[in-house]
């Protein structure tokens, strides 16, 4: 044994460290971590607690309360601004539109209207969401996206629109 090392030293060879077992461990760790992670960048949207009593009591302030409420109906969107409804007589304010042979919500029109409202009420950041019970979570997320960053405080109302 000693003789072998002496032979190597005499030949001028530098002994290499055994990295193969460490490689095995690292490779297994990579495999385990890759298997556990979905590799999807997960983010969050902050929301406020649902109010069982509705939109809330009026605050003593000279400025008119916006109380912007977005109603997600089966057929489109309705808006309520400062206590008055903006809906059309014959249907929702922003009805669903035809896209790829499917009826979809008009998020662009909603965003344009919210931008317009924000110009009139620059201090307000809050929206209240009401929806049809069957409205899917994806559409709710897209409504919140349309309102961001003008209105980034979202409150849910448990009351359903039938």
């Amino acid at each position: 044994m000693r003789g072998r090392f002496r032979d190597r030293e005499s030949l001028g060879e530098v002994p290499e460290p055994e990295i193969l077992p460490m490689m095995n461990i690292l490779f297994m760790l990579v495999m385990v971590l890759m298997g556990m992670s979905a590799f999807l960048p997960i983010g969050v949207i902050s929301i406020q607690a649902p109010q069982l009593s509705g939109a809330g009591a009026p605050v003593a302030d000279s400025r008119p309360e916006l109380n912007l409420t977005i109603m997600i109906l089966k057929t489109g969107f309705n808006l309520s601004v400062a206590g008055s409804m903006l809906k059309c007589e014959d249907g929702p304010l922003f009805p669903k539109i035809q896209k790829d042979s499917q009826l979809v919500y008009n998020f662009a029109a909603l965003r344009a209207k919210l931008t317009e409202i924000k110009a009139q009420y620059p201090q307000d950041k809050r929206i209240i969401l009401m929806a049809d019970p069957n409205t899917i979570y994806e559409d709710i997320t897209r409504v919140m996206d349309a309102a961001r960053p003008m209105f980034d405080e979202v409150a849910f109302v448990p009351g359903m629109i039938q």
Partner: peptide, 14 residues
């Protein structure tokens, strides 16, 4: 899930 209905979401939140 992205198809979760609003009704279920509200139940969970409340």
């Amino acid at each position: 899930d992205r198809y979760t209905p609003y009704r279920v979401l509200v139940d969970v939140l409340v």
